[in-house]
Computed example of a mutant assay.
Amino acid sequence: MRRREPCRLRLRLFSAAARLFTTARRQHLRFARHWPWTDMITDALARLEALPNPG
């Protein structure tokens, strides 16, 4: 099962119902609220942003 997990995550991420828009030269990604994995992806993105900058 562990071997299939990255494929499943990649499928969920790339099939996400989201809209990319640009405002004031910044790009934003807005996920649909009705999509089942929205919470999981937004939590993962928040954790990535919270990591310290290695450089």
Rank of each mutant, 00 (worst) to 15 (best):
M1T: 04
M1P: 05
R2V: 13
R3P: 01
R3G: 07
R3I: 10
R4F: 05
R4P: 00
R4G: 02
E5P: 00
E5N: 03
C7T: 07
C7A: 08
C7Y: 04
C7Q: 07
R8K: 08
L9A: 11
L9I: 14
L9V: 15
L9Q: 12
L9C: 09
L9N: 10
L9D: 09
R10H: 14
L11P: 00
L11K: 08
R12D: 04
L13A: 11
L13H: 09
S15I: 00
A16M: 14
A16S: 15
A16E: 05
A16F: 04
A17M: 09
A17E: 12
A18N: 01
A18R: 03
A18F: 01
R19Q: 09
R19Y: 05
L20D: 04
L20R: 10
F21G: 03
F21A: 03
F21R: 11
F21E: 15
F21Q: 05
T23I: 02
A24W: 02
A24M: 06
A24G: 05
A24T: 07
R25C: 04
R26K: 13
R26W: 04
R26G: 00
Q27T: 15
Q27Y: 06
H28N: 12
H28K: 07
H28V: 07
H28I: 06
H28G: 01
L29F: 03
R30S: 12
R30H: 14
F31Y: 11
A32V: 04
A32C: 09
A32Y: 04
R33D: 11
R33M: 02
R33E: 12
H34F: 13
H34I: 12
H34N: 13
W35A: 10
W35G: 01
P36L: 09
W37M: 02
W37H: 13
W37D: 13
W37E: 02
W37V: 00
T38Y: 03
M40D: 13
M40L: 12
M40I: 11
T42M: 15
D43L: 11
D43N: 14
D43C: 07
A44I: 02
A44G: 06
A44N: 01
A44H: 09
L45Q: 03
A46G: 10
A46Q: 13
R47L: 11
L48A: 15
E49G: 06
A50Y: 05
L51K: 09
L51M: 12
L51D: 07
P52Y: 03
P52M: 03
P52N: 06
N53Y: 08
N53F: 06
N53R: 09
P54Q: 13
P54E: 12
P54I: 08
P54C: 15
G55I: 04
G55A: 14
